[in-house]
Each structure stands twice: as structure tokens, then as C-alpha cells.
Simulated assay, not measured.
Amino acid sequence: MTALELRELRKTYRSRGRPAVEAVRGLDLGLRSGELLGLLGPSGCGKSTTLRMIAGLESVTGGDILVGGASVTGRPAQERNIGVAFENYALYPPLTVAENLAFGLRARRRSLRGDVRRKVAEIAERVGLTDVLDARPAGLSSGQKQRVSLARALIREPDVLLLDEPLSHLDAAQRDTTRRELKRIQRDLGHTTILVTHDQEEALSLADRIAVMRDGVIQQLGTPYEIYDSPATSFVADFVGEPAINLLPGTATADGHVRLSAGVRIALPVPVAEGRAVVVGIRPEDLSLTGDGGIPARVVAHEPLLESGIATLALDGVERHLVVLTGPEVRLAHDERVRVAAGLTHVFDAETGDTLR
């Protein structure tokens, strides 16, 4: 197993007649040996560019990439011993599954023919491809294609494994199954792994730690629990969580509340200077409907989802609606009047988006 470190990694795209685009801006990141890190963020945030620089498929504008303590920044991709499973599978259509798996080993000519057959059989058994070794990619399901792509990256016994949106083309059932298989395989083999994804569920369920990226910068790095329970910015809070967190702008008052409108106030979890513009964040599961007390609200919509429900509420004088996670027994009618109480509350600076603690 091998550690991975990124030091002040940068990537700037330049083209004649157009302003330079900073895709990755001074990324500092260290992975422990055997760790699985989720690189999470929206499209265009720089996560796939980062992965391609680590793999040697994209040139580096500045900074350094170290694998096992040694710099690989100047080495070509074929000399880095880094396995990559691509989003689009990148399989060779004329070749069988077995031939796809063996292709890299034979191309590098570092394994004898018998060793290649043995390695193909071993990795096929580990990822569940033994029954389709003679099939060609066109005859495989999306889940099987994804496993072939993963197996081809693993068969070379890489120092670092890079997974680029590995589950994006699978349907919901395949995604759940493949996600569990992926976690089992990574734990069994112990490869130091980066998972690039825009899907928060993938990152939260698979990763030991998550780096949330935005505009080429890491907004927060931490365990899934740290990212979810203690978001560093309003962007992180909004990006991670389903249903999404409620973000309500308001003004801090002298008595430790935030005023959302003339008639709606919520207690702040930390002292904030009077008059300061803030954004209050409350996750839907941290809100509850109460018979007495609480904030008066009107039901805009209620979605019963059998195991739970999602209620959308309007607060008097507040522009943004409030989303509340309800129990399966709750039944609400349109325009019904209710009262809602807040539990755990986050507060962010309205200008910078940074959390206030």
C-alpha cells in the first residue's frame, strides 16, 4: 500500500485570445496508505482535472504529486503504476472480457503468458466476471462493463487507484449493488484510492474522508460525519444532504436570535453581533412539527414516501420555503396550518458563506 500527496497542485488552461482559466488552484491533499478519499463537487469544479493530473493524462501547471514519497510529476502515465477506471469504461469492443483484462499486462510485457492467465482468472473471480470472460463488451450490462473497467485497473496491482465517476451510468438498483461491491473490493485489496464523483451518496457511503471542491479549491476536508454535521461553508452544507438543507437569510438580533421576517425569529446557536447579516441552515431532519409553540407555518405540499414524508412549508413573511422531514404516520393537507420547531441549527456569514462558531 502506498501514500499519495498533492502539494500546491495547479492547472491553468490558456488559449490565444481568451483569458486564462484556473481549473485547479493550489491543491494540498494527503492520502494515507490504503485510504479511500472521495473528491466531491459539481461539474466544472476541477475534480476530474485533478484526477487526470495524478494519472499523468494532463500536464501540471505547478506543484507536485508524490506517490510513496517520490515525485511522479515528470513521469509519463505508463511509468506511474496508477490504475484508472474511467467514467465511459474505455473498453476495447473487438476484444473479449479476458482479452480486455490482459491487454495492459501484455502491452507492458512484464508478465509471462501463464502469469497473465492466472491474474485474469483471479481478478475475474474477485469482481464477479468469471462467467463472462469470453463475452465481448457489446453483450454486457452496464454493471458488468463497469466491473470490467475496474478489474482492468486493478489487475496491474497499482500503487494508487483512481475512479472517475464509476457509477454514473448505472441505474438505481445497479448503483446500489455495485457500490457495495466496490467498497468490499477496495477494503479487501487495500489500494489507496481517489473516487471522483458529483454524487454525495456515493461519497458519503464509500469514502473514509471527503474533499468537497468548488472552483478548483477544496472547501472542506473531513470524514463523512464531519462534512455532514459540521459544514465549513454554506456551499458544503447545501451540496451535501438529501433533502437539501434549508438556508434562510436574516439579521442577528441583540437577544441571540435571527430575524427572518417581522414575525419569524429563530434562536442562534452561537453569539452573533446585532445587525449582522447571516444565513441560518437547518437540515430537514432537524425540524419537527409541534402541537404547541414553535413557528406558525402553512403547508404548501406534502409528499408521503412510505418510510418518511417531505413537507414544504411557508413561513409568514419569509420568501424561501421550509422543507421538513416527517414521520410515515403524518398526514398533511394543502394550506393546513401547522407549527414547526428547529433543533440543530447552523449559522453562516451572509457575505463569505463561512460557518460562524
Rank of each mutant, 00 (worst) to 15 (best):
E157S: 13
R152Y: 04
H191R: 12
L206N: 04
T177P: 00
D188T: 14
L189H: 08
Q200S: 10
A151T: 08
D164E: 06
L162Y: 06
P166G: 05
I185V: 15
L206W: 00
M213P: 09
A173K: 15
R179N: 08
Q174T: 13
L154E: 07
D164A: 06
E202N: 03
D164S: 10
L161T: 01
L195P: 02
L170Y: 01
E157K: 14
D199S: 06
L182P: 03
L189R: 05
H169T: 11
L150K: 09
L167R: 07
L204D: 10
A172D: 04
H169R: 12
P158V: 01
S168A: 15
A203F: 08
L163C: 05
E165G: 06
I155D: 01
G190H: 05
A203K: 09
R184W: 06
D188C: 03
Q200F: 14
I194P: 01
Q186S: 09
D176N: 12
H169S: 15
S168D: 13
S149N: 07
R156S: 14
R214A: 14
E181K: 11
L162E: 05
L195G: 02
L170G: 11
D199G: 08
A203C: 05
R179Y: 12
I210P: 06
I194D: 02
R179F: 13
R179T: 08
